[in-house]
């Protein structure tokens, strides 16, 4: 700095800011470009016993062949291997064990739970005389509050369980509907499964379907997607409370795994 009035010079800081800028923007673009699949999607496992039963009216002519094969295999299968004298001891043996276990467990648990709650309830009135008036009242109040809290917790747990059950039943409904619309490609084998991601809107319409985990067989994957698209919408979902819908069905993962394949 020979002259005070020389051209003002500033220290050159170029490399680090340039690198930092490029790194930051590359990161942002990468994050945006990466197709996010949110981790809070849940796979709702369908329950075998749905609350929502999909009933279809069947004419008797159609219904007849169905019940026919069911009773047939049982009498046909059982009598041939077993000789005639055996059926006699069977009815004798069977009724005996049945009544025995039934009365046995029933009286046993009944007396047990009854005394259990009683000692719990009894200590509550006991502390009342020991401390002074207000404390007894407070204790009673506390006990009531605790009971209310327990009640609320239990209710919340029950509600959660009910919600989960409801979700599971709807999930199994969706799965059933999809399986009905499914046409089996020739390459399908037993045990194949494909994980589908279905986007739904609250009216139950399918917005998009994509494969999350392929079964390894493209024809099978395509047939599963086609089945969902053929189903098109699940109007039953309209009955679902909105919160439940947002939680479980907005992005719904369906494990498509037909089990009734013969080979």
């Amino acid at each position: 700095m020979n002259s005070l009035y020389a051209k003002p010079a500033t220290p050159r800081i170029i490399l680090r800011p340039a690198l930092a800028t490029l790194a930051l923007h590359a990161l942002v673009i990468f994050l945006l470009a990466a197709n996010w699949t949110f981790s809070d999607e849940r796979v709702v496992k369908p329950k075998p016993a749905p609350k929502v039963i999909n009933a279809t009216l069947v004419t008797l002519a159609e219904a007849q062949p169905k019940p026919a094969p069911k009773p047939e295999p049982k009498p046909v299968a059982k009598p041939p291997p077993k000789p005639e004298p055996k059926p006699v001891p069977k009815p004798v043996v069977k009724p005996k064990p049945k009544p025995e276990p039934k009365p046995a467990p029933k009286p046993a648990p009944k007396p047990e739970p009854k005394p259990a709650p009683k000692p719990v309830e009894k200590p509550k009135p006991e502390p009342k005389p020991e401390p002074k008036g207000p404390t007894a009242q407070e204790l009673a109040e506390q006990a009531r509050q605790e009971a209310a809290q327990r009640e609320a917790a239990a209710q919340a747990a029950r509600a959660a369980a009910a919600a989960a059950e409801l979700a599971a039943s709807y999930a199994s409904l969706i799965r059933q509907t999809v399986e009905q619309r499914w046409s089996r490609p020739p390459t399908a084998r037993n045990g194949m499964e494909v994980l589908l991601s279905i986007q739904l809107i609250p009216t139950g319409e399918v917005v998009s379907v994509s494969v999350l985990r392929s079964s390894g067989d493209t024809a099978f994957d395509r047939s599963a997607i086609a089945a969902v698209e053929r189903a098109g919408n699940f109007p039953e979902l309209k009955n679902l409370p909105p919160r439940e819908f947002e939680q479980n069905f907005r992005r719904f993962r369906l494990l498509f795994r037909p089990e009734d394949l013969r080979y």
């Binding site: 500033t10 170029i14 800011p17 930092a20 930051l24 923007h25």
Partner: peptide, 21 residues
């Protein structure tokens, strides 16, 4: 906007280093 953002980030980091120094 992309250029503006890059330039402004460049200047932010550059100013940061300069001020710290």
């Amino acid at each position: 906007l992309l250029l503006a953002s890059m330039a402004s980030w460049y200047m932010i980091v550059q100013r940061f280093i300069y001020f710290r120094n």
